[in-house]
Design a protein around this nucleic acid. Structure first.
Lengths: 195, 195
DNA sequence: GTCTATATAGTGATAGAC
DNA sequence: GTCTATCACTATATAGAC
């Protein structure tokens, strides 16, 4: 097999394992086993664990950009597009209840490890923040857009954290509905202010 | 030194290290070093790492009960008492920006490790949830109390998660103000409904 | 590009002297 | 109650054969 394809298989497997088991708790042997490679051969593709982490973060940044671009095309209005973001809590509910939010949990783990890649992991959060900010600007939020974006992002993070701790589907549904209602209220308020 | 005191020193050191470095990443050697014990002697006090974790969770449960009891005595009204909870985001801001919320991060790590103590770690969350629920009931929220409690708890979790990722003090301040304003609005709404 | 074999360091955990 | 010495295991990482 070509080195390029093998490398990508490794990164995909590492991405999944880092999410489900955590970065520190996932060994080279785990990843090598998942792609059916010997540990020796593994080092031909990646020399250090930090190199794999960098590649995984790159992959997540790219996947996030693609997802955000998809929502931008899918939603007819800023409200509809922001609702796409909110709904990932429902769409990924089972995985979130089991393993938490992939973005938030990696950031938190790297913070505890005091890892050099900590800032790059937070860049995934920044992609969401900037995308949401642009949508709130399109809604006419002006200077307020950044604050509204962080509020929605934080709200969804908190919902994911408690979904993981309590495994309460009703809670998740209720918070998502609350977010959508809040979003509609903000849209009305901003529309009034614009007149 | 008495075994009791040594044991408590170990648990206090482990509590701190588990918070700052994570449970899995903290070794026996780290804890033994922090309390200036040899690793051999260490095993006289705790036979397994899971035993230390159990003791740390017990300690956190006890500390949380004491804190909640303190707030119950301190605040003159349910709103004032719930504001005590909200303000821990400000009081512990520096540590939260560095290491996240102690409760949330331990729950998330144990979830990834698929650790047996996962449910007991979530019990600390449950203490906050039940205390907040009782306060919202005192505010006249009735059946709604549990949902309002989880909403505040989730909001503070999300704020802690993003505070850790972005280290943005202005954001934390703004969300805390937002929580207090939301709380006041809920109190007004419930007071109206009671009339 | 893939493998086996191996070096080195750290882990949780135990035994037994003092 | 505290220590040193040690065990079995796993981790990252390397060397070199094929």
């Amino acid at each position: 097999m070509g080195a390029r394809e093998t490398r990508e298989e490794i990164v995909a497997a590492a991405d999944d394992l880092f999410y489900r088991q955590g970065f520190d708790h996932t060994s080279f042997a785990d990843i090598a086993g998942a792609v059916k490679l010997s540990r020796g051969n593994f080092y031909y593709h990646f020399r250090t664990k930090d190199e794999i982490l960098d590649a995984v973060i790159d992959r997540r940044l790219e996947a996030t950009r693609a997802m955000l671009a998809g929502w931008a095309a899918e939603g007819a209005s800023p409200v509809a597009r922001i609702e796409c973001f909110v709904r990932i809590l429902i769409m990924n509910q089972i995985r979130i209840m089991a393993y938490g939010c992939p973005v938030g949990t990696l950031c938190q783990e790297l913070a505890k490890l005091d890892h050099a890649a900590r800032a790059r992991a937070a860049d995934v959060f920044a992609l969401f923040r900037d995308w949401l900010t642009a949508e709130f600007e399109a809604l006419g939020a002006g200077d307020e857009a950044g604050a509204l974006a962080l509020h929605v992002l934080g709200w969804s993070q908190g919902t994911a954290a408690l979904a993981n701790a309590f495994k309460d589907e009703v809670f998740v549904r209720r918070e998502v509905d609350g977010m959508c209602a809040w979003l509609a209220a903000q849209a009305r308020r901003l529309a009034r202010a614009r007149r």
